[in-house]
Design a protein around this nucleic acid. Sequence first.
RNA 1: UGGGCGGUCGCCAAGCGGUAAGGCCCCGGACUUUGGAUCCGGUAUCGAAGGUUCGAAUCCUUCCCGCCCAGCCA
Length: 563
Amino acid sequence: MPDALPSNFIRNIITEDINVNKNDGRVHTRFPPEPNGYLHIGHAKAICLNFGLAAEYGGLCNLRFDDTNPSKEEVEYVDCIKADVRWLGFDWGDREYYASDYFEQLYQYAVQLIKAGMAYVCDLSADEIREYRGTLTEPGKDSPYRARSVEENLDLFERMRAGEFPDGSRTLRAKIDMASPNLNMRDPVMYRILRATHHRTGDRWCIYPTYDFAHGQSDSIEGITHSICTLEFEDHRPLYDWFLDALKIHHPQQIEFARLNLTYAVLSKRRLLDLVERGHVTGWDDPRMPTLAGIRRRGYTPESIRTFCERIGVAKRNSTVDIAMLEHCLREDLNKRAPRVMAVLRPLRVVIDNYPDGKVEELEAVNSPEDPSMGTRKVPFSRALYIETEDFREDPPKGFFRLSPGREVRLRYGYIIKCVDVVKDLKSGEVTELHCTYDPATKSGSAQSGRKVKATLHWVSAAHAIEAEVRLYDHLFLKPNPDDVEGGADWRSNLNPNSLVRLTSCRVEPSLAAAAPGSRYQFERLGYFFVDPVDSSSAAPVFNRTVTLRDTWAKVEKAQRKR
RNA sequence: UGGGCGGUCGCCAAGCGGUAAGGCCCCGGACUUUGGAUCCGGUAUCGAAGGUUCGAAUCCUUCCCGCCCAGCCA
């Protein structure tokens, strides 16, 4: 099965490992988030990779929370992370683990290293440790406590655990090489004294292992075969290897890949938090956020995210994927599954002068041209309708196919109409109403319906339409690279002031009265919309624009404007 | 300037000595009662320079550029 999938360097490694029967041909991965924030699309890449690889090779993938820093982690995050991974479509069975489950084992490992003379208790302060570490170009120097006896180290470490020393007063360090060109090998800290209540172990511990001392061993304990992580841990691999070899325990293979970057977006926990705290967005689940919670509320499907993650591939090169790629995967999925419906966002009243007053026809509309099995529905047609304001131009530019004085267009599923009069507001000059005539012989499906017109417009019957709020979302940033700023300014100056446009008097066709929160539709000619699961109600429906349709006219117009 | 890792089309990304996959974007065109979808077609000699070889993106050398590392964060 793996052969059918696109090649990438990780698959190559695993395939080769299986060929030489490494780990008895077993593949076991894990997704190891720290429960200190929300998952975003970048994590989705790691999730799809780890769970995907395990599934492809008939292996398993664990969900493990790397909760070694109680001062930053909370149980709420654990719950959100689990919900997000599940939403993406992955299942970790009963293998929900926590690094904190291994605290006692990790402590014993530390004791083992002390006994082997490979770790020591150091009394240097944080600042002193930094000074002793040296710099990128100069070697560090040995801590004065480096030569303590095994007995003394054992005693001190035990007393650290017992709470005899204040926070930060001592650490347990690995005795490696203060002159190593790899700073991670300059006697890294393994344990620190930290009196903080842990979300799982409470106050049982006052010393906590560092990530560096916990991660590799946690993988080892779980029998992980391939520890897939991001590039910045490449420098740490020699350290993890050192611990594993010193401890003589199962040795997973670490493989590093480049984390995802997206254009028109920001993807770091720090910046995401900043956006939330400064109120640039309404919260972690704001539909403009690249968090899984935000993306979900925007209306993205998990399937589209999974195919996106598959298509962008995996490599070691730092890269920024065009958000158009994500949007393409989304449209591709939604095109297949979203029922079509008509909605007018900015209504312009149209009166069909020669259509009998009071008459109502129920026109048959197809729910999806992509999938006939989705059936049809009835849409009421009457004398007074609404069309999209931007579908009429009194003075049509070149290439504008839609309605204008004297011109004909088809109303989708209805008739061909011709604009015969334009009513304007005397003061503002704004077009407030159109008068048209219809040709009864052009009804959709009838013999003469085939007459060619340049455009087909969506519409809604004024008397039958439902009022709704529509939230138009756009990229959060104006530039592909938010960091592309003029001197002095910062990335926030690139925030798109129009990333959210709320339209409160939209009109949607009556069939949408039954639209359930969380359901998706294509508003014909406009885009894909999602019934907001939080704010929408049958009394006051709210639709989020997930993504627009591809719009070639918009492109033409943009090009014309430039000229 | 120490160490680690990268540099193949505008953006991702295959390729592993035999003469540059694919996707996105973009540009044409066909079709179309969504200017949607779909369908055709178009666009790179592989960071640079040397070298090895019948033959190199793939091997060697040197150089250039980018990213990461000096948390008791992960």
